[in-house]
């Protein structure tokens, strides 16, 4: 079981949304992180056989995503970043429809639908029309449909968007339980999700794969570059103009700043241990301005 991307690129008109992306992966959870517009969704769509790449090769178990789409899709689960559902259907009807589209045998459909409903904690709402669902409930049904065919390759794009904290934790647990003999590609902005479930991280920026690493290694790369300081409002404003700031908390005796900088930003600043979020912001942000505002 192996996903291989070799020098994958995707061009829209004159713009390269993705360029020279190469990596391979066996079973496990691989997190794909990067700022908006960095090319994460494009890469996931190429892997999910939705988009043909302009250059390079993407394959799953040796099957090219361009020429073996149908075979790959038998073992693929995919949750798009943005999706709608048929509002006329209930969740149960919708999942049965998706199960039929995924070519599940008729005898298994009803049972499998009940199992995924249970997995996303939606059994008691399963007969309500999807048109009446909240955003979080729709997201859970989206996750459920991706799991219907017990996929070997699960591609999820921003899956926890719209979920409340409790449901997010439940989803992480669900993902963690799925990793045996399957590959989960998880694209997310929520760094705590990555920390919780993923042992490998791909950081994409401006269509390029910047890092193929582990969360621990990325944190280690940020060591010595994260500072904290408590100062007055005027000084805090000056620091924000000069440095990347990952956190700003108003306290009783001033403003506490968490600063990302290769050099000591101020005499009073003290070095602290970086978090994964610090590391992500340090490497993923395209400019200091993106962080200070």
């Amino acid at each position: 079981m192996e996903l291989v991307c070799e020098d994958v690129g995707k061009q829209y008109g004159d713009l390269w949304a993705l360029r020279h992306v190469s990596f391979s992966s066996g079973p496990g959870i691989v997190a794909l992180v990067g700022p908006n517009g960095s090319g994460k969704t494009t890469l996931l769509r190429i892997i999910a056989t939705l988009l043909p790449q302009t250059e390079g090769r993407a394959s799953w178990n040796g099957m090219d995503t361009r020429s073996h789409g149908e075979e790959i899709r038998y073992g693929l689960g995919y949750l798009p970043q943005e999706f709608g559902l048929y509002p006329e259907f209930s969740a149960r009807q919708f999942l049965r429809y998706m199960a039929a589209m995924k070519r599940l045998p008729k005898v298994l459909i009803a049972r499998r639908v009940e199992e995924v409903l249970e997995q996303v904690n939606m059994t008691k709402f399963a007969d309500k029309r999807l048109g009446t669902y909240s955003g979080g409930m729709k997201q859970r049904i989206g996750i459920a449909q991706a799991l219907l065919n017990d996929p070997e390759l699960l591609v999820v794009d921003e899956p926890t968007t719209g979920l409340d904290p409790e449901e997010r934790v439940r989803f992480r647990m669900l993902l963690a339980g799925l990793t045996q003999s399957r590959l989960v590609l998880l694209s997310t902005h929520i760094i705590s999700d990555v920390e919780a479930v993923s042992a490998r991280l791909l950081l994409i920026r401006e269509g390029q794969l910047l890092f193929d690493t582990t969360p621990e290694e990325l944190i280690a790369k940020a060591a010595g570059q994260v500072w904290t300081i408590t100062t007055d409002a005027a000084n805090a404003a000056r620091i924000q103009e000069q440095c990347k700031v990952s956190a700003l908390v108003s306290q009783q005796y001033g403003i506490m700043l968490r600063i990302l900088s290769a050099t000591r930003p101020s005499e009073e600043a003290s070095l602290v241990e970086p978090t994964l979020e610090d590391a992500y912001l340090l490497f993923a942000a395209t400019s200091s301005g993106a962080l200070t505002r």
Partner: peptide, 8 residues
């Protein structure tokens, strides 16, 4: 997108 990643 969900329809097009099915094996149909």
């Amino acid at each position: 997108e969900m329809s097009m990643v099915t094996p149909v």
